[in-house]
């Protein structure tokens, strides 16, 4: 099991008020699964995703990522989990604007202290996997939205994560680029990466093998 959450609660403290966002969420994912989370705006999708991505800690509940108990993790251990086990894909890509596609993709490997030469090789291979071998030296402003998202995907997979997390990966793309991204996710999932994707769009969610609904911070599994 790559992911196992039991009775997760999350609330934000706003002034003196405690705002509950997630209520008693239990959710698990087998290795190699492809899951989509759907729900209306403000339902807590991103909040859940941040917890799963080790960017945030739940207020209560148990959460195991690849067998590791997150509640016992230090800040540095959380960083290392993000670095080695998780790949992030964001709605708005978050590429470094001044750097080439290659440098953007190499970035996580630098944090993992991979030697310079190997870094380059692996980044080139990742760009090849997303079909951008001919764009390695382009900067983000010289790329289309779809291409930018594919660079971001290359960056997410370059350190061979077990779990790919995508928060509305097609939200900023036209349908054609969106379809390309979906194709890529499909391919990566077939290669053994577990994929967890958030989306508003039922058509996009349909690419996943399992869809989970969230409403007002509560999960409803849909078969």
């Amino acid at each position: 099991m790559i992911l196992d959450m039991r009775g997760i609660n999350k609330s934000y403290v706003q002034g003196k008020m405690e705002v509950p966002v997630l209520h008693d969420v239990s959710f698990s994912m087998e290795e190699g699964e492809y899951v989509a989370i759907m729900g209306p705006s403000g339902s807590g999708k991103s909040t859940l995703m941040n917890i799963i991505g080790c960017l945030d800690k739940p207020s209560s509940g148990n959460f195991f990522l690849d067998g590791q108990d997150i509640s016992r993790c230090s800040e540095n251990q959380m960083s290392d989990l993000r670095l080695h086990k998780i790949g992030f894909v964001f709605q708005s890509f978050h590429l470094l604007p001044r750097q080439s596609a290659l440098v953007n993709v190499e970035m996580p490997l630098g944090y993992a202290h991979v030697p310079k030469k190997e870094r380059r090789e692996r980044a080139l291979r990742a760009l090849d996997r997303v079909g951008l071998s001919d764009r390695v030296n382009f900067r983000p402003n010289q790329l289309s939205g779809g291409q930018m998202q594919r660079v971001a995907i290359a960056r997410a997979i370059v350190n061979n994560p077990k779990l790919l997390l995508a928060d509305e990966p097609t939200g900023a793309l036209d349908s054609k680029s969106g379809a390309q991204v979906m194709e890529l996710f499909q391919k990566l999932n077939e290669e053994g990466v577990s994929v967890l994707m958030i989306t508003h769009d039922a058509d996009i969610a349909a690419h996943a093998k399992r869809v989970v609904m969230i409403r007002d911070g509560m999960l409803l599994e849909k078969e």
Binding site: N76, S79, L83, H94, M107, A156
Partner: peptide
């Protein structure tokens, strides 16, 4: 900075 931390840069 947020991105770098998200993809695994330590403090």
């Amino acid at each position: 900075i947020g991105l770098k931390k998200a993809i695994g840069a330590r403090k």
